[in-house]
Simulated assay, not measured.
Amino acid sequence: MKISQYLDATYLKTADQANLSEEENQQKVVDLVNEAILYDYKLVMIRAKYIPLAKKMLQESNNKILIGTVIGFYEGTYTTAQKLEEAQNAINLGADELDFVVNYEAFKKGEIEFVKNEIIKCTKLCLENQKVVKWIIEVAALTNKEIIVISQLIKSIVFNEFGAEKADWVFVKSSTGFFKTKDNLPNGATFETMQLIAENAKPLKIKAAGGVRDYETAVKMINLGVDRIGTSSSKQIVNKEDNSSIGY
């Protein structure tokens, strides 16, 4: 197993969220891209405004690392039109993969037709532009039953609207990593939630994000059927694999 090829190395904080100047925050992105080049990650996940910078760095290093960004982030309550506009901008800037936050609040209210329309339109835009699309369902905001239902819903939409041959182009992703939970409960991927997604979304791809910070957890996630891991701890994960005597 080359674990680096499962990793979406992630830095999604705005300058305000990180309490940094814009220049300092941009340097965080530069550092992430340089780290990705060094460790051969699958993808760097960054805010759309930094895509041209990352693209230039990767081209100059003759590197095929992918660039991903987030849409409707992080609350998911943007209108479908706003998400489509944001996505088109990211595509124009050169993003390879787009991670949309599904409107899980509308889903929880039973507004299923609204959610279906959002998923269909945004997925269609990505597929027409040969871009991978990931749907963040925000597992910490959902019950286990809701995780099952929304995973099945996304799968059925892909199969019915775009065909089974597009399964490799669509992911169900666990979390934004920004959701605020009560009582300090996990706000990202857990083994239980990823098992539920795997059982109900496959053969779509699945991505664990939020809370995967060490090699052992990453390996367990992959063994559960996870295809990609979004993490801000990519370096720690890869270094542990390099130093590990475990036969993966």
Rank of each mutant, 00 (worst) to 15 (best):
D227H: 14
E216R: 14
G76D: 01
A218S: 12
A48I: 03
A218H: 02
I119S: 03
L53G: 07
K220Y: 00
S4Q: 13
I147D: 01
S156C: 02
E60W: 08
K64I: 05
Y78K: 06
E35W: 03
K166L: 11
K207E: 08
V212R: 02
F107T: 01
I147R: 02
S244I: 09
V30K: 15
Y50C: 01
L125H: 09
N92Q: 10
S245C: 08
A18V: 03
D96I: 09
G230P: 05
Q59E: 14
A208F: 00
A106E: 11
W169S: 10
K207M: 12
L7F: 06
N92A: 14
T193M: 00
K108P: 01
V238N: 01
N243S: 15
I71S: 10
Y11H: 14
K116E: 15
M57A: 07
G68I: 01
P203L: 14
D214Q: 14
D183V: 01
N243F: 05
S233I: 01
I37L: 15
I229D: 00
Y104T: 12
N129H: 14
G188M: 01
V226C: 13
R228G: 04
I119F: 07
N187Q: 07
A95I: 04
A87S: 14
D227V: 12
V226N: 03
Y41R: 04
T123A: 12
E192M: 08
T231Y: 13
K202E: 08
F171E: 07
V30F: 06
D31K: 12
E86C: 04
K49E: 15
R213Q: 07
S232C: 14
L93K: 15
M57F: 09
L224K: 08
L7E: 03
T181L: 04
A15G: 04
L58S: 11
T80E: 11
E161C: 15
K116F: 13
V102E: 02
I37K: 12
E216F: 09
T193V: 08
L98N: 07
L224V: 12
E60S: 13
L38C: 09
Y39R: 08
E24G: 05
L84T: 08
E60L: 12
V139H: 00
Q152T: 05
Q195V: 04
F171M: 12
K42I: 02
A140T: 00
Y248P: 00
S174Q: 05
G76A: 06
E105Y: 08
T190N: 07
R47L: 13
I136R: 03
A201H: 06
Y74W: 11
F179Q: 03
K121T: 06
T143S: 15
T190I: 08
K202S: 15
S244A: 11
Y78D: 12
I137A: 10
V219D: 00
K124C: 03
I136H: 06
Y215P: 05
G225H: 06
L12S: 08
N34V: 05
A48T: 13
W135M: 09
P203Q: 14
I71L: 13
M57K: 11
T77H: 08
Q152E: 14
K205F: 09
N223L: 14
I150A: 00
N103Q: 11
E22H: 10
E192S: 12
T79P: 12
Y6P: 05
Q5E: 13
